[in-house]
Amino acid sequence: MNIALHNDTQVALSNYVLQLADTNLILAQRICEWCGHGPVLEQDIALSNIGLDLLGQTRSLYQYAAELLDEDKSEDDLAYLRSERQFKNLLLVEQPNGDFGYTIVRQFLYETFQQLLLTELKKSSNTQLAAIAEKSLIETNYHYKWSAEWVIRLGDGTEESKSRIQKSINEIWTYSGEMFIPCAAEQLLASISIIPDVAALKEAWMRKVKTVLDEATLTMPENMYMQQGGKTGVHTEHLGYILAEMQYLQRQYPRQQW
């Protein structure tokens, strides 16, 4: 820890780091479901690459969260021994994979946000968060590029691909607003400039997404109602199943080495 933090700040920071870690982990978990089932070998490999990057980021974040929590917890305790209401991931990333186009849109909306967030976060006064952000951003830039290129390819590909990916955009859009609605931890941390104000990232995000959708000849949904709750642990019904599957060995055989 580089600066002595007030107790409230410390709690907010650990919650925030968990939120970042949980989001990456749940998305990686979804990506794992693709492995061996991709539409073409090269893209199977690309998806696994992204999954590996996200898992790497997850581990750095949980390790930092464990330090902040100071309860003698390991990265695996945080991933495997917390329950549905304790997970703080965005609703967006827990949505089922759908077809390849749906997976691409989910990834694209998330990585576009991550790119903006990490660019700010690497300037954080919290040096540990800044270091994790700086390292992650290099990977995120690649994820953004890969997913944006696929949005364009599928949007401007065949009629079938265009109608499929447009449908995915329309379905998933309702989960995109949550990224820009700060929770209490984010508000507190933004007020002391440890993290950026996420609401302020929305405009740039809309612009970037619009540019890619335009090139892909796709339409951006307008004025849609936005779901939220992930950051405070109120999830869609999907998360329970993800955790049941992911955590089962650790739950069934507690306190073992693997």
């Binding site: 492995c35 490999i45 695996d76 992911m246």
Partner: peptide, 22 residues
């Protein structure tokens, strides 16, 4: 992959399966 018992094992297994694709 989705049931690997630790984050390290999950990452190692994913890397292994990816090697096989390669």
């Amino acid at each position: 992959l989705t049931r690997a018992p630790s984050l390290k094992r999950k990452a190692t297994l994913l890397a292994k399966v990816q090697d096989e694709a390669g």
